[in-house]
């Protein structure tokens, strides 16, 4: 008997191989990269709200506080008040936007239900957190760059130490992105995250030395200021521009590193246990 020739499909080993599960190495680079790109596109899509708006708001604050205080408070330490104000406001914009990026992303996903899009894929807690935080840092640094370009013609400050600027820009954006992710995971509705923004993040960024040197504070507040991580991020960042700081610079670097590490561990723990994410 003549054997029938094998069915064409049997001679296509390629098709069979493609059905095998895709191997993921120790790190899911594709998944992490995809989530990062998605998070960045999310805010670039509405860049008027996420990049242009903070610039306008920061210029507005600069104008308002320069007008209100410029005539009376002429010096902040050894530098003119207007030069002192500029870097503080840039840091405030970066911090608020890094926080807004992760917090809004997580809360909106949770409420709309598409949080499953990031919970279902084979992403480890560290990979998920890394993509969120990296996107938050991207937004913070981007806002910082654009705001600096906008405010520089008015404030006229120079660059004293680019390394301090870069370190504190990234470390502060990271800290705020971590806080935003944690607050986002914790929030069950928009009211919760709005409350955290209104009653914690905004006052902390306003009252942590953006507008004044610590020696202008009453005695008891000076000690409180030195226990506040927000103070170190503004102070260190501003040192990079004006070469003058209120706190000890090395302590500032360490505080930012320790805060970021601690918050990173908290976020990983939340994602690993599925706190308020996997009911």
């Amino acid at each position: 008997m003549n054997a029938l020739p094998p069915h064409p499909s049997a001679t296509r080993p390629v098709a069979a191989a493609s059905m095998a599960p895709r191997r993921i190495g120790r790190v899911n680079w594709i998944g992490t990269g995809t989530l990062y790109r998605k998070e960045v596109k999310r805010f670039l899509n509405v860049f008027t709200q996420t990049i242009a708006a903070p610039v306008v708001t920061t210029l507005l604050f600069y104008a308002v506080f320069a007008l209100a205080l410029g005539g009376i408070v002429r010096q902040a330490g050894d530098v003119p008040f207007l030069q002192f104000l500029g870097p503080g406001l840039i840091m405030m914009a970066m911090a608020q936007n890094a926080f807004a990026n992760t917090s809004s992303s997580v809360v909106i996903s949770k409420i709309q239900g598409n949080i499953v899009d990031v919970l279902m894929p084979p992403l480890a807690p560290a990979e998920l957190a890394f993509a969120w935080i990296a996107a938050g840092i991207t937004r913070g640094v981007l806002v910082g760059l654009v705001t600096t370009a906008a405010i520089l013609p008015f404030a006229g400050f120079a660059v004293h130490d680019p390394l301090f600027i870069a370190y504190h820009a990234v470390a502060a954006s990271m800290m705020m992105a971590l806080l935003g992710s944690i607050a986002g995971v914790w929030s069950e509705k928009f009211d919760h995250i709005a409350a955290v923004t209104n009653f914690v993040v905004t006052p902390m960024t306003f009252l942590s030395g953006t507008f004044y040197t610590v020696d202008r504070l009453p005695e008891g507040w000076q000690i409180a200021a030195h226990l506040n991580p927000f103070f170190y991020m503004i102070d260190g960042f501003r040192y990079g521009f004006i070469g003058q700081s209120d706190g000890t610079l090395m302590i500032g670097l360490a505080v930012m590193a320790v805060c970021n590490l601690a918050l990173w561990l908290v976020l990983l723990r939340m994602l690993a246990t599925g706190y308020k994410l996997k009911p």
């Binding site: 205080l69 408070v73 905004t202 006052p203 306003f206 009252l207 507008f211 004044y212 202008r216 507040w221």
Partner: peptide
């Protein structure tokens, strides 16, 4: 609350 924050900022920035 944010009005009180503004007032606090102004008042602290004026300092002495």
């Amino acid at each position: 609350f944010s009005t009180l924050v503004y007032i606090a900022v102004l008042s602290l920035a004026l300092g002495p």
